[in-house]
Design a protein around this nucleic acid. Structure first.
Lengths: 184, 184
DNA sequence: CCGGCTTATGCAACTAGTTGCACAATGGAG
DNA sequence: CTCCATTGTGCAACTAGTTGCATAAGCCGG
């Protein structure tokens, strides 16, 4: 129930076409609410049908032509309502943790390489976030909006830091298990 | 593609009926791969159909009768294969971060209470994990299996710790914004 | 001026997870 | 011994997200 609200947020930040939205999701909002272009187009159609957004009138609506959307007052109200409404956290699902647990019964064979790979992916994502922080949030400035967005980015940075460290820890544990295994 | 593997793992740890599995998911595996009883029954049927598990022959298969399953060799092989296979991390989706970002454009009205509520939920989950750690992983013992399971539990503990602290930080930020808002 | 590449939009089918409910057996309480 | 809550199993419909592909316009090189 959140993709429409992610799109409303993005469109309020800046009216855009479907493809522009897709790109912005890839570089920003998608870090905590990812979506494919197919999802986005479908949802844009729904939101337009519900009268929450509208196509900017300047462009003609032919296939292969850019079509930009903006948020209507009803859309802003819906977003404000949703943002303020109490919501329970959704249960997480983490395949890597599940695989570790499975490895406890079927063996760790082949898992270590992928752990190392995931560690590198998280380290790279962390670096990306840090670059965004340097670029968009230089120290000691920013109004209310910037402070909130920075807060969200900090969550991303700290989470990637956490996973990088946790995977280091897991790999160290694997190394220790290997030694014990050889000795036993 | 992971629910069947979560079930195989659980069944290898201990053969169980659908309801027993459901309870164990609620208390353990479900912390990183949640599932409802409906999902579990459906999946047990599929896994049986594929010949990866079988119903223990002791009980009669009538409705309202307990029916326990155990993993067959093919099921163990499939789980080992899946565990070792390289997998890309799935994109995360976090509605709370999205709401913060939305609040940057539509205002923070009404959000603070829910932040506080989420903070308490995470604090409570953290306490649950710590109790499990005290109970199941007393310091200075445990074989390979225990060490891996402890590693997974540590991820849970550290993540809940992270979220509790991050939400404290966010709430402090909100308080600061309120002051600035009143003064401005 | 045509063939292929890029940009842009979008439909259809599929997979996974959620919600709502139904139904059978069992074990007390009255 | 009957009503009813609890335990246990399961189907059906729905929602959300993914994958694969189709289509159209514009542009650029030969």
């Amino acid at each position: 129930m959140s993709l429409p609200h992610a799109i409303l947020t993005a469109l309020l930040e800046k009216p855009s076409s479907g493809l522009e939205l897709t790109r912005r999701f890839d570089r920003s909002i998608g870090y905590f609410w990812s979506a494919t272009h197919q999802q986005i187009y479908r949802e844009l159609g729904r939101l337009e049908g519900e009268g929450l957004i509208r196509a900017l009138p300047s462009e003609q609506p032919a296939r292969g032509q850019k079509k930009a959307y903006e948020v209507l007052p009803a859309g802003r109200e819906e977003l404000a309502r949703w943002t303020a409404a109490s919501q329970d956290p959704k249960p997480h699902r983490d395949a890597l943790l599940l695989r570790l647990r499975a490895a406890a019964v079927v063996g760790t064979e082949g898992l270590e390489d992928d752990l190392r790979r995931h560690r590198e992916l998280h380290a790279r994502q962390l670096e990306t976030y840090r670059e965004i922080e340097r670029r968009d949030f230089p120290p000691g400035k920013g109004g209310t909006e910037d402070r909130l967005r920075h807060l969200v980015l900090r969550a991303g940075i700290d989470l990637e830091t956490f996973w990088t460290q946790w995977l280091d820890h897991a790999l160290a544990e694997f190394a220790a298990l290997d030694v014990r295994g050889r000795e036993g």
